[in-house]
């Protein structure tokens, strides 16, 4: 599904190197988690994959189902099946959540050569999916993320994911700012989307999210590289001993 090879990235303006050779291969239907201390490059990896400005790829490649990602515009990556659930979902005053969702769904369908959803069909689908995430009609009407609580914003991200049905989902610290109940709700939303060959990359500081979204593979990232990979037990090890041991071991 997602193949990242020897990815080197620096900040465009500061000449600061963030990723120093990331290798990652995620198969269809697999769930991978990346853990790591602050500043290890986890979020940068997610932004670079989604196509945010401000980063320069100095070496390496990333492909999605064989297609070279790094050459594409962000919207082309989305149409190709990539989705990034933001750590900080953006508030957009003046743009209705529903208008936004429908424009997004139809833009992707159009890019893929599929027929656009009619207003009626769209409404039916969005209501059903919103209900499962406990997103009420009022939230759908409001401007995108404006005045949403932290939990509402994250649920809104998962709703977008459910509507867009991406092949490869990246969740960037989706658990940050969530209480236990909200985290459970978001995790249930994510788990409902598992299967059908859909892959996930879950970026998190803490093991607790991985209690709810069970990964197949856990990677530890530090100083712009993946320094260790293993099964779910690796997350537990981090939880017990912190990153220091692992970092020390490698260093």
């Amino acid at each position: 599904m997602l193949e990242i090879k020897n990815l080197h990235v620096k900040l465009e303006e500061e000449d600061k190197v963030i990723l120093r050779g990331v290798d990652l291969s995620i198969g269809a239907g697999e769930v991978h988690a990346i853990m790591g201390p602050n500043g290890s490059g986890k979020s940068t990896l997610s932004y670079v994959l989604a196509g945010r400005d401000g980063y320069t790829v100095t070496d390496g490649s990333a492909s999605l189902e064989g297609a070279e990602l790094l050459e594409m515009e962000p919207e082309e990556r989305a149409a190709a099946g990539l989705f990034l659930a933001f750590q900080y979902p953006v508030e957009i005053p003046g743009v209705g959540n529903m208008t936004f969702l429908r424009t997004a769904v139809n833009a992707q369908r159009k890019a893929r050569g599929e027929a656009e959803l009619t207003a009626g069909d769209f409404l039916k689908v969005v209501r059903e999916k919103a209900r499962a995430l406990k997103i009420d009609a009022e939230m759908l009407k409001r401007p995108v993320n404006v005045g949403f609580s932290g939990g509402e914003k994250k649920r809104n991200e998962i709703l977008q994911m459910a509507m867009l049905e991406p092949r490869m989902c990246i969740l960037d610290e989706t658990d940050s700012g969530l209480d236990v109940d909200a985290m459970k709700l978001v995790a249930d939303g994510v788990n409902a989307l598992r299967g059908a060959g859909r892959s996930f990359l879950v970026i998190t500081h803490y093991q607790r999210l991985l209690d709810h979204i069970k990964p197949d593979v856990v990677h530890i990232m530090a100083a712009g590289r993946i320094i260790r990979s293993g099964g779910p037990e690796l997350a537990l090890e981090v939880e017990m001993n912190g990153y220091a041991d692992i970092l020390g071991e490698v260093g």
């Binding site: 196509g51 989305a78 149409a79 953006v90 957009i92 833009a107 890019a111 867009l164």
Partner: peptide
């Protein structure tokens, strides 16, 4: 905001129009 909209599949011009 532009990147957020683009990352959801809106072409840059459409995203800019919405904003």
């Amino acid at each position: 905001a532009l990147f957020y909209l683009q990352s959801r599949g809106l072409p840059r011009t459409v995203a800019q129009g919405l904003l």
